[in-house]
Amino acid sequence: MITLYDYELSVNCYKQRLMMAILGVEYTSVPVDFYPGWEHKSAEFAKINPLGHIPVIDDDGFMLRDAHAILVYLASRYDPSRLWYPVDDPCRLGETAQWMLFAEGTTNTASSARLHDNLGYDFDIDAVRAGAHKLFRVMDEHLWFREREGLDWVVSGAHPTIADIALFPDVALSEEGGISRLDYPALRRWTDRVRRIPGFVTMPGVIALGESPWD
């Protein structure tokens, strides 16, 4: 059974909970007192992750850290359809890797703005917000063209991938970092489609489908 070192309000932990819920993977959550305890920075936690961040998973003794790496592992191991991480299609696999790297960017901008505004992290708030808008603009345009081809997800093809899961929380919680999605209609439609994926779960601050005041 998988153990997830988890903090409920962390977007990167939510990515794992969302992926496991969709794949129907059972797991145990070990809550880390992220704030105000900063437990992930403790000497004790350094044995689990010397980099001092979450999430980390322990799958029967196999330890893995870094949100997007864990998504690769979960889909590769627990999705027999091989659709979430499309290893059999070189083009889609390449696109998935491309959008996973893009998601590092949304995490470092949109989700950093949220940490700044909510928990007082010391980031250059104007710079991270501007960075997020730049990426959202690219995503919105990309998704708009996808829709014109009748496609729903960031990677081509009919099925969502781990890239959608990696991107969704950074986008869905952007308002908490002062980043409005008003000007990104295709991006908003995509967040609705993600919410409709069977098995979808929310986290505090992520509104379920049909309840959102802004989407």
Partner: peptide
């Protein structure tokens, strides 16, 4: 303390989008 904090922080985070909009 950590368990109680978690519960209360969940409640607070659920209020955030409502409050900020």
């Amino acid at each position: 303390d950590a368990t109680i904090r978690r519960f209360q922080q969940t409640i607070l985070a659920q209020d955030m989008p409502i409050l900020e909009n």
